[in-house]
Amino acid sequence: MTVQQRIRAFILENFYVSDPAELADDALLVTSGLVDSTGVLEIIAFVEEEFGIRVRDDETTPDNLESIERIASFVARKRQANGPTSFTSGDVSAA
């Protein structure tokens, strides 16, 4: 699974989405009411654990976290910034 798919799977499961087809990867998660402020913290905890990154306070912004796509590209940027790690190129989806 790509990073984006893993994030998507987590969000569908954790926020018990009834119809996955209704959740587009560019849908705004907080604005649409799917994710509340506690939910954003759950997402942060997930990406930190799943992808071995640390999310700084000043990175907790809608630009980084408001949609599945944005989270995926944020994770990709973080992992690149962390220097060469073990992930394969197929792991990072185009965002």
Binding site: V30, L41, I44, V55, D57
Partner: peptide, 15 residues
């Protein structure tokens, strides 16, 4: 709270 949570709270209450 950490700044992140304050940012989120502002987002929530400011909507």
């Amino acid at each position: 709270s950490p700044v992140s949570q304050r940012t989120l709270a502002r987002e929530f209450f400011g909507r």
